[in-house]
Amino acid sequence: MKFKTILTLVAIALTLGAISIWVGQLSYSWLPPQASVESQLIDNLFSFLVTLGTFILLGVAGTVTYSVLFHRAGRYDLSDGPHIEGNVTLEVVWTAIPFLLVLWIAVYSYQTYIEMSIRGPMEMAHMPMASSIAPALAEPIDESVQPMTNIEVEAKQWAWVFRYPEKNITSTELHLPVDRRAHLVMRSPDVIHGFYIPAFRVKQDIIPQQNIDFEFTPIRTGKYRLRDSQYSGTYFAAMQADVVVESMADYEQWLAEARQKSPSPAFNQAASEYAAREQKSAKAGWATIVPASPPIVNYHP
C-alpha cells in the first residue's frame, strides 16, 4: 500500500515535471526575438522560472482540484472532517523547500546578472557619491577587447535623439552595428524617461541632469522598437523610436550617408498630435506640457 502511494506520487511528480519542462521551453516563444547577448541570458533564467512556477502552480492547483472533486461533503452530511491541527514534519518541509528554492533562484539570478555585465549599474544616477563607497557587483567587460559603438542619447518630452559623437551625426533612428558592444550616454533635460528595447531585454531610467551610462551588445540584425518605459507625461505612449541593427558595412554606409545630409526637422508624433489638437476648436482634453519641437537631425526615416 505504502509502496503504491509512493509510486503514484512519483508518477504524478514526473508527469508534472514533464509538463513543466514543456511549458518552460514554450516560454521562449512568449518573448520578443533574442536580439542581444543579454536577451539569451534573461530568457534562460525566465524559462527556468517558468518551469519551476508551472510545477508549483500545477501542484497546488491540482491538489486543490482533487480535494474539491473528491473530498466533497454529501448534501446532508453535517459531520466535520478529521481533527488534524498540523504536521510538524510537513511544515518543516514546506518551509525548507521554498527557502532552498529561493536560494537557488537568487544564485541563478545573481549569476545571470553578473554575466550580463550590466555596466556598474548607474551609481551616478542613484547617488552621485555612491560610486566611491560601493563598487558595483557587476564589472563592465574589458573594454580593450572590443571597440564600442559610442552614442549619446537625448530623451526629452517626447522625442528620442541619437548623436554619434565621432562623426557628429544626429538621428531619430538608432542604428547599431551587430555584434559590437554599444555604449550609450543618456541624458534627459526634463523628466525621468526609461530607455527600453524589448528585443534586447534592457531597460534603464534616465534621471534628468545626469549622464547615464548604459551598455549592451546587439547580436541579430533587424529593426526593433525603442520605447519610453518610465511614464513621462501626456504623450508618453508616443515616445518611441526604431532601432536598426545592421552589419558593420551597412552601418558604415549609413553613417556616411547620414553625414551627407544637412540637418532637417524630423517627424515627431507628439508634436504633430499636439498641433492637430490645438487646431481643433473644441478642446477634447486638458492642458498639457507643450511637446518639444520636432528635433532637427541629420537622419530621420
Binding site: V60, W94, T95, P121, M122, M124, A134, L137, D205, I212
Partner: peptide
C-alpha cells in the same frame, strides 16, 4: 531600473524573494 547600484539590486532581490517563504507556508 531607476539606476540602483548593483549591491542594492542584489540585496533587495534576495529580501523580496524571502517573502515567498512565509507566504508559501500559508498557501
Amino acid at each position: 531600473a531607476s539606476g540602483t547600484p548593483g549591491w542594492m539590486r542584489m540585496l533587495f532581490m534576495f529580501s523580496t524573494m524571502l517573502i515567498s517563504v512565509p507566504t508559501g507556508i500559508k498557501v
